[in-house]
Design a protein around this nucleic acid. Structure first.
Lengths: 155, 155
DNA sequence: CTTGAAAGTGTCAGCTG
DNA sequence: CAGCTGACACTTTCAAG
């Protein structure tokens, strides 16, 4: 995908990354533009899939999801990577599924209530995915930073 | 932190996780409540830090950030974990910093333009953090799923 | 991109159970 | 305390320039 983004677009993205619920008029004030012009740009950014979605970051502790783990999953060498990936992606506790270079094939990020529910989830969901050979789990003791904001470099 | 969340709160969180820019009236319609009551609940959720922030997911490809990597960082055994973590967290390309169990001490998620800029960032930023003994980098070939939405279980 | 106007929304005070 | 109503100001959104 090639998209042309000018400095105004980048500034919009920067402001919206920091606060998705910023109002159009506030955006317009920051950019010294009319609200309608800003709205039009935002709509175009959505439509061009530059903006993928607006989400609310909920405190995991408030929902009793205290355990975070990364699981490396090794599978039989085969062409059907995509199918396995899709099955992993369907597990609700799984927040991320990456296909990675090296001998481990998949890296999965998982959030559960505690270690017991992690084990339950692995037995119930991950180990039932066909062609899974082995898993290697890394437990997170403490998260120091967790954000999806991208670095925006204006020209 | 212990917070009491009832089913209405959970429904608000579910709707806002999926779309942070949903309007108050739409929320109210979904919940069959008056907008003012919903607004009050949302404000309380923000204030109680159940809602941490509203962010916009920007397509990394649109900003030319095509490379995603996870780096395990081993450091000298010491008490000053927190200081190292803070230094890692300050690197703009670093989206996540976790302190993990096992012999690797830190796990860091990084997004850069390409492998050259990843190497540059490692030389310039990570290797300059004191007490870093070694790093082990896992390159992501393809991301199949990436979301931070939590599983919400209504009672 | 701007203006201007209509329709819709956020927000608050005051009221009710 | 949590929710409702009603009212006003502010926003969103669109057509036209």
């Amino acid at each position: 995908m090639v998209v042309e983004l000018d400095d105004i677009d980048l500034q919009i993205l920067e402001l919206m990354q920091a606060n998705a619920r910023i109002s159009n008029v506030d955006l317009a004030k920051e950019l010294s533009m009319a609200p309608s012009a800003v709205l039009e740009r935002v709509k175009k950014l959505e439509q061009k899939k530059v903006i993928l979605q607006y989400n609310t970051a909920v405190n995991p502790a408030a929902l009793n999801q205290r355990l975070l783990a990364f699981i490396f999953i090794k599978t039989k060498e085969l062409e059907s990577d995509a199918k396995i990936a899709t099955m992993l992606a369907r597990i609700p506790e799984v927040q991320e599924v990456h296909i990675v270079a090296g001998e481990d094939c998949f890296l999965v990020k998982v959030r559960t209530e505690d270690s017991a529910s992690l084990m339950a989830m692995m037995r119930k969901s991950i180990k039932r995915v066909p062609n899974v050979l082995s898993t290697k789990t890394t437990i997170v003791l403490e998260t120091v930073k967790e954000q999806q904001q991208l670095v925006i470099r204006k020209s």
